Simulated scan of single mutants.
Amino acid sequence: MALRGPKEAGEERAAFGAVVTLAVMAGIWILLVGGTKPHEMIMGAASMALAAAFLYKTKQSDTLDLRFRAADVAAGWRPPGYLASDVWVLIKVLVLDLLRIKRAETHDRVWGFRTSKNEPVLAARRALATVYTSATPNSIVVGIDYEQNRILIHQMQPSRLTAMQRELGAAAFGQHGLGTHRAAARGKHGGER
Rank of each mutant, 00 (worst) to 15 (best):
A2P: 14
P6G: 12
P6D: 11
E8H: 09
A14E: 13
V20C: 05
V20L: 14
V24C: 12
A26N: 09
G27S: 04
G27V: 07
W29S: 01
I30T: 15
L31Y: 12
L31G: 14
V33P: 03
G35I: 02
E40S: 11
I42C: 06
M43Q: 13
A45F: 10
A49Y: 07
L50D: 05
L50N: 05
A51T: 04
F54C: 08
Y56D: 07
Y56N: 07
T63I: 11
D65R: 11
F68P: 01
A71F: 06
V73H: 04
G76C: 05
G81M: 13
S85G: 05
S85I: 10
D86T: 03
L94F: 14
V95C: 08
D97W: 05
D97E: 12
I101G: 06
K102S: 13
R103I: 03
R103L: 06
E105G: 06
D108N: 08
G112K: 04
F113T: 01
R114E: 12
R114I: 10
S116E: 01
P120F: 00
A123K: 00
A123Q: 01
A129W: 01
V131T: 11
A135T: 11
A135D: 09
A135G: 13
I144K: 02
Q148Y: 09
H154E: 06
Q155S: 07
Q157T: 08
S159C: 08
E167L: 09
A170C: 10
A172D: 15
L178R: 13
G179M: 05
A185H: 13
R193G: 13
